[in-house]
Design a protein around this nucleic acid. Structure first.
Lengths: 233, 233
DNA sequence: ACTCCCTGTTAATTTATTGTTAACCAACCA
DNA sequence: TGGTTGGTTAACAATAAATTAACAGGGAGT
């Protein structure tokens, strides 16, 4: 079950590029409506709400610029990105004047497009995936690293800095071993006997906090490290 | 009398380009602080508030990327644009990953730059307005940042500049942790022991002002920062 | 089973951070 | 000049967190 990060209207007449982008963006967690010309693009836009539009400039039936104008007329809020093969200065300026939030020229990497989309969505306040917010779900428990808080069945439990750091490390490696020395070096700064004992104390504390979740366990791998085990149902 | 549209920090080592841009942007109604290297750029940034930063990537003393990182640390709100001669894909991606709001490559027309600036300012405009109106409601209390006044049950209490800045920061992150270093960097300009103690004194003052509201609390997250908690009814 | 070493747990101790009040100082202003 | 005001530093109390200690189990090899 993946949460949809945002609804995107993609208008691109080049079949190959269109499908490729659709696939890529869907894999990134966006819901895509792919249209092949300006007119169907406009119809699609009218039919429901989108968080973002990606428009090719050269489109059959109705070009990207006039499409953008009409979209802007219908909903001036909606941000849009132009994609184009032409690197013409004048074209870029025309796009930006129309209020384009971004303007990228082919060839571009999907990585770049992804970052630009994320940037725009972040700015308009669309909630990004929580992974960047550092919110983890551990069984029924919600761990908000940024606020150092654990939500256990409605109850809030505040964590100390070290507790939070340690739990984050385990969460980032759910169901995977994290070696003692790695934890010690990263959180305690160095790996000696006493630091190690200190860490064990913290493991005990975390176990205590998580004990209400039977599907969640911090298991010890003798002589090696720990693993946060979460058994999905 | 010309209204200043925005304060822009421009860091560009190429004298010609730098002056040219400064002139152009000033004619456009922006107030420009031109710096010639990364280090002086950082100093300038610390010295006051900017609405936007335009950074060359290739800078003497401290490159644009690390400058951006530090700026982001001090005030994650501030948008920035990278300007560079290199059209390297990997560079563009690095910049965007750092959270750049835009990335434009030389040569570019001043017209394009102008449009991109307007775009960004327009986008942050809404939030800006709210935070430029700068009237927050904290439970029953009304905090007018612009006038540095707190309305507590009809009573007016005037705040000092630092008190107001600190309270604003907390308000902008209601119910969210604000880290000590971030407050210190943003308001006090640097993070050392005494600044920290000074801040603690201000926290005490604010707590005192807000103590009549039982639903409002400034809670300390030990070793990390503070959180303005407002419990809705 | 015996032994060594690693881990679990709780409590005691030490260290670091914060709360608070007041003294101090510099800038501003009548 | 002297009185305000805003801001910093100092000092001490109160807390919270982190480490250390102490002891009890447990695994793994012999």
């Amino acid at each position: 079950m993946k949460e949809v990060k945002a609804d995107i209207l993609l208008v691109e007449d080049d079949q190959n590029l269109g499908y490729m982008l659709q696939d890529f963006l869907e894999m990134e967690g966006y819901r895509i409506d792919l249209q092949k010309n300006g007119e169907s693009g406009l119809t699609a836009f009218k039919s429901r709400q989108f968080d973002l539009c990606i428009l090719d400039v050269m489109l059959p039936v109705k070009d990207g610029f006039s499409l953008a104008e009409e979209i802007h007329l219908i909903n001036p809020q909606t941000p849009f990105i132009f994609v184009t093969a032409k690197a013409l200065q004048s074209d870029r300026i025309k796009g930006l004047k129309l209020g384009a939030d971004d303007y990228i020229t082919k060839p571009f990497s999907t990585e770049e497009l992804k970052l630009r989309i994320e940037n725009i969505l972040r700015r308009i306040g669309k909630q990004q995936e929580n992974t960047h917010n550092n919110v983890f779900t551990i069984g029924q428990i919600i761990f908000d690293f940024a606020n150092q808080v654990l939500q256990i069945h409605g109850e809030e439990r505040r964590l100390t800095k070290k507790e939070a750091l340690l739990l984050k490390m385990l969460c980032q490696n759910v169901n995977n071993l994290v070696r003692r020395e790695q934890i010690l070096l990263q959180i305690w700064g160095s790996d000696d006997y006493f630091m190690g004992r200190s860490m064990d104390v913290y493991i005990a504390k975390l176990r205590n906090y998580l004990k209400s979740e039977p599907t969640v366990n911090i298991v010890n791998i003798h002589g090696t490290g720990f693993k946060l085990e979460v058994n999905e149902l």
